[in-house]
Amino acid sequence: MQADYLDGNALAGPLAEIFAADVSAAVSRCAACGQTGPVASLRVYDRAPGLVARCPGCEEVVLRLVRSPDSAWLDLRGAVTLRIPLRDGTGPGGQR
């Protein structure tokens, strides 16, 4: 049977509008079950009024994105963290 969802790479374009970094390369931790994995491995339900990205481990919602004509609504309640790879830089603790 054909899957009724896409993989998390489907988030790359819609999230690029908001984040400078490529979020599909980020690692998310599921708030429901703790599973950690790349955003690209989330299951994205796009045949809906918004994008709903679910954890491949427990199927709970990790991220939701609704785009209205003048706003993006991003819900990250289902993610404990997003670890976003960045170039060498300075952390909040000071200079390195």
Partner: peptide, 9 residues
Amino acid sequence: FPVLSAGPT
């Protein structure tokens, strides 16, 4: 009749 769903059936 389009099928819309925010998750698994």
